Simulated assay, not measured.
Amino acid sequence: MSDSLQEVYHIREMRLEDVRRIILIEREIFLFPWTEMNFADSITAGYYCRVIELNDLLIGYGIMMIGPDEAHILTIGISAQWQHQGWGRRLLQYFIDLARQQQSVAVLLDVRVSNGVAANLYRQLGFEQIAIRKGYYPAMGGREDALVMRLKL
């Protein structure tokens, strides 16, 4: 990623009017995408809903909720054409920093067992697998397990 690109991106609060663009990315990258209502409910519930923009182009999004001690990243996604360029790492680091600011002691997330690229990114950032949720995700022809990963802050 060039220095000029680093200067033109920003992360901001997700708005209801963003949901239609987010859904396009969601459908592009996930076989079993969230619905518009899932995103709208997260915004109205007051979760930490953010988008990452590059030159006013929405290229990714994430949602995190924070409980008394822990933050839980509910979803994170980067448009396919912008993946493998460091944008997911930047957005994830933003959420980790936000969790620290909110005095969380850990960040939790779930990832499909088959999503090795994401799991490796999480490990690079210090997340450790702490459990497996059997049959957590819908999958073609059944269900898929989720790795539960935690980053101690």
Rank of each mutant, 00 (worst) to 15 (best):
residue 7 E to A: 15
residue 8 V to I: 15
residue 9 Y to I: 13
residue 9 Y to H: 08
residue 10 H to V: 07
residue 11 I to H: 01
residue 11 I to P: 00
residue 11 I to D: 06
residue 12 R to V: 09
residue 13 E to F: 13
residue 15 R to S: 13
residue 18 D to I: 03
residue 18 D to L: 02
residue 18 D to E: 00
residue 19 V to F: 04
residue 20 R to N: 10
residue 21 R to K: 13
residue 21 R to P: 02
residue 23 I to T: 03
residue 24 L to P: 02
residue 24 L to K: 12
residue 24 L to D: 08
residue 24 L to G: 07
residue 27 R to L: 07
residue 27 R to C: 09
residue 28 E to R: 04
residue 29 I to N: 04
residue 31 L to C: 09
residue 31 L to F: 13
residue 33 P to I: 03
residue 34 W to Y: 06
residue 36 E to N: 10
residue 36 E to K: 15
residue 37 M to F: 10
residue 37 M to T: 15
residue 40 A to G: 11
residue 40 A to E: 15
residue 42 S to E: 15
residue 42 S to K: 12
residue 42 S to Q: 12
residue 43 I to P: 04
residue 43 I to F: 07
residue 44 T to N: 15
residue 44 T to P: 07
residue 45 A to S: 15
residue 45 A to E: 14
residue 46 G to T: 12
residue 47 Y to C: 08
residue 49 C to H: 03
residue 51 V to C: 02
residue 52 I to S: 03
residue 52 I to R: 06
residue 52 I to M: 07
residue 53 E to P: 01
residue 54 L to G: 00
residue 55 N to M: 14
residue 55 N to Q: 14
residue 58 L to G: 00
residue 59 I to Q: 00
residue 60 G to Y: 02
residue 60 G to V: 03
residue 61 Y to T: 00
residue 61 Y to K: 00
residue 65 M to R: 11
residue 65 M to L: 12
residue 67 G to A: 14
residue 67 G to W: 11
residue 69 D to M: 07
residue 72 H to V: 11
residue 73 I to V: 13
residue 74 L to T: 12
residue 75 T to F: 05
residue 76 I to N: 02
residue 77 G to P: 01
residue 77 G to N: 04
residue 78 I to N: 02
residue 80 A to M: 10
residue 81 Q to E: 15
residue 81 Q to F: 13
residue 84 H to Q: 14
residue 85 Q to T: 07
residue 85 Q to F: 12
residue 86 G to W: 12
residue 86 G to S: 13
residue 86 G to C: 13
residue 87 W to I: 11
residue 90 R to W: 05
residue 90 R to C: 04
residue 91 L to N: 05
residue 91 L to W: 08
residue 91 L to F: 10
residue 91 L to T: 00
residue 92 L to T: 09
residue 92 L to E: 01
residue 92 L to V: 09
residue 93 Q to I: 15
residue 93 Q to E: 15
residue 95 F to R: 00
residue 95 F to T: 00
residue 100 R to W: 02
residue 100 R to G: 06
residue 101 Q to W: 12
residue 102 Q to P: 10
residue 103 Q to H: 14
residue 103 Q to K: 14
residue 108 L to R: 05
residue 109 L to T: 14
residue 110 D to Q: 15
residue 111 V to I: 07
residue 113 V to R: 12
residue 114 S to D: 08
residue 115 N to F: 01
residue 115 N to L: 04
residue 117 V to H: 12
residue 117 V to R: 14
residue 118 A to C: 08
residue 118 A to T: 07
residue 118 A to N: 08
residue 119 A to G: 02
residue 121 L to A: 06
residue 125 L to D: 04
residue 125 L to V: 10
residue 125 L to C: 04
residue 126 G to H: 07
residue 127 F to V: 08
residue 127 F to K: 05
residue 128 E to L: 10
residue 129 Q to S: 12
residue 130 I to T: 11
residue 130 I to A: 10
residue 131 A to I: 09
residue 131 A to E: 09
residue 132 I to G: 11
residue 132 I to H: 05
residue 132 I to N: 13
residue 133 R to C: 09
residue 133 R to H: 13
residue 133 R to P: 07
residue 134 K to Q: 08
residue 135 G to I: 10
residue 136 Y to K: 01
residue 136 Y to S: 01
residue 137 Y to T: 07
residue 138 P to Q: 03
residue 138 P to Y: 03
residue 138 P to E: 03
residue 138 P to W: 05
residue 141 G to Q: 08
residue 144 E to P: 01
residue 145 D to C: 00
residue 146 A to H: 07
residue 146 A to M: 04
residue 146 A to C: 08
residue 147 L to P: 01
